[in-house]
Design a binder for these strands. Structure first.
Lengths: 196, 196
DNA sequence: CGGCTTGGTGCACTCACTGCAGTTAATACG
DNA sequence: CGTATTAACTGCAGTGAGTGCACCAAGCCG
């Protein structure tokens, strides 16, 4: 691990921490990027070197999580069904005892701009899941629509469960797994399991 | 109908028309609000009197559509199942031969900011549908999460179908109805039909 | 006609975000 | 070891979305 790389990650982490803190104490709208940067001891320009938008600083490990998701999609450990795997990673893999995570999802439940950001990042998962489904269903336009529809539905369930966690502290795992199973895995069982 | 009200609607319609035209000919990012306003013969400030964001001008009849949706939810004509009703209104009620609509959804499929806007507007439907489901399931936190999860899933299917229409011209109605039925109506049939 | 309402205007402002031309320090290389 | 290169960070000037406010002018209503 480089010293440069180390410094870079440190800066990014510090920015994300101060962003989350300021968002939750002063409110998202009342917090300026300038303030976050100042709190982290860097310039405002540097903030945008690490995060493309103000909202993105609330989800600092998104790219990493998507990468993990993709990596584990193919290996022997994960369930063949990518939708349950999605749920496992998004809701199940969540450390529900982490205060930072909790703060993040409480904010998500309250702030519109962060919901937008969340929906935006979900599209990365959508693309991956849809591509996975299309391995079985083919590349035809109609298959693509169906794959995206299913992926979108699954993400909708996960998203709602996570927001429910932020709002009321409902454990996202149970409800998410149960609904996904009833809604997607059972009705679409055969075509999905035939992928393995 | 007032003359004032008439003038107001006319201005709004003109703004929306020029917005859509400029977005699709010059690109969304390359179009400024200033340009749209100038093309419509009003000031930039007036644009924001009619639309809260630049993206919102691409979906000028959103509020009206949601109002229609809510109005029809309770009456005797609509199916008891609000999710199929959702699909009916969003995808089925779509005039697939209207060039303006087509342009709108082609743009939607291409421009990230418009997808964001679409996801944002979908939240209005989510709230209504979830509230409807909660009439049967109760107000408890867990019921709320389940209701929002189901509503979100249905919206995900509709959204993907509509984007598929924009991208490839696939008729959104068939795929949307079929998936929704298989995914939600059948597995959740009993609790939903007991509402009627 | 005279007061009130309301759609539209002009202006100044904030703030997110970008492009560019640096500086400094870590690193790679001869 | 000294030098060239790379890359994190900075400062600055700019664009453009969106807002608050005071204001006009034209429709509405008694």
């Amino acid at each position: 691990m480089n010293q440069r790389e180390l410094q870079r990650r440190q800066t990014r982490r510090t920015l994300a921490e101060h962003a989350l803190r300021l968002f939750s104490t002063n409110g998202f709208d009342a917090t300026t990027v300038e303030e976050i940067a100042a709190a982290a001891g860097v310039s405002q320009r540097t903030f945008f070197l690490h995060f493309s938008t103000k909202s993105a600083a609330a989800f600092p490990d998104h790219e990493e999580r998507v990468r993990d998701f993709v990596d584990r999609l193919g290996d022997g450990h994960s369930v063949g069904n990518p939708l349950l795997h999605l749920c496992e990673v998004l809701a199940g893999g969540l450390d529900t005892s982490s205060p930072t995570r909790r703060t993040r999802y409480q904010l998500l439940a309250q702030v519109g701009a962060l919901r937008d950001e969340d929906a935006r990042t979900d599209r990365d998962y959508e693309v991956v899941v849809a591509a996975y489904l299309m391995q079985a269903w083919g590349e035809a336009a109609e298959a693509r629509v169906r794959a995206h529809a299913i992926a979108n539905a699954a993400l909708g369930v996960c998203r709602a469960s996570l927001i429910g966690w932020g709002e009321d502290g409902i454990d996202p795992r149970e409800v998410c797994f149960e609904i996904l199973h009833r809604m997607i895995c059972s009705p679409f069982d055969a075509p999905l399991h035939s992928l393995q």
